[in-house]
Design a binder for these strands. Structure first.
Lengths: 103, 103
DNA sequence: ACTATACAACTAGGAACGTCGACATGTAAA
DNA sequence: TTTACATGTCGACGTTCCTAGTTGTATAGT
């Protein structure tokens, strides 16, 4: 058995927690599945097709942004969100490498 | 925008929720990091190096097992757990494929 | 300057989760 | 059969999370 339980979690894994928590909620999964490849959506568009209120949608988008899964940019009145595919692939790659035993 | 928000989540994603939730907790991450490649550990061994009570460790192991990340087998008095690397790689592969836009 | 719009931030109630101690189950040994 | 041990389960408590409503901030248009 590895004896690293009492030590700090590897830095790779620490930033991964937020991603896993973000992806663990069905509402947030549904939101992510809305995006076409490369597409950007704002809060109003997502709220329009959601069953949740605007403030709740905004709350979930904040969790997704804080986890790094989504990035955002304010243009005029609206905030546009898009999936950070590079970050997601990095995260998934790290875990995949660990599972394969290469770490 | 894709219009599948109101529809059911793809079956691939539905089973993924449990995995993401399971991996989103730091205690459960620490437990997973204990395993050497191919190693099996029982509840007592994990409790010994944990800061949590035995019943709480058992609770987290149940979540990890229900998600499919861990598998278990009872031999005599003890229950031995091991990481289902094949399942984890399947899950990560599905998400990676989606992020790459191939789905 | 004023109004309307789009979003973020804060608040509070209710639901869900994490934790522990005590009890129950099942197995092996004496 | 009795005893000891390994693990699972249940109840209770405190904490965290989800959700909606309200308020605040910045921008666009009149």
């Amino acid at each position: 058995m590895k004896d690293n339980y009492r030590n700090t979690i590897p830095e790779n894994w620490r930033s991964l927690s937020k991603v896993f928590i973000a992806l663990g909620d069905e509402h947030r999964q549904r939101m992510l599945l809305l995006f076409e490849p490369g597409e950007r959506l704002n809060v109003g568009q997502i709220t329009a097709v959601s069953t949740l209120s605007r403030s709740t949608v905004s709350h979930h988008l904040k969790i997704l942004r804080d986890s790094g899964v989504l990035r955002s940019e304010k243009i005029g009145k609206e905030v546009w969100f898009w999936i950070d595919r590079h970050w997601l692939l990095t995260v998934l790659g790290n875990v995949t490498d660990y599972v394969r035993g290469s770490t």
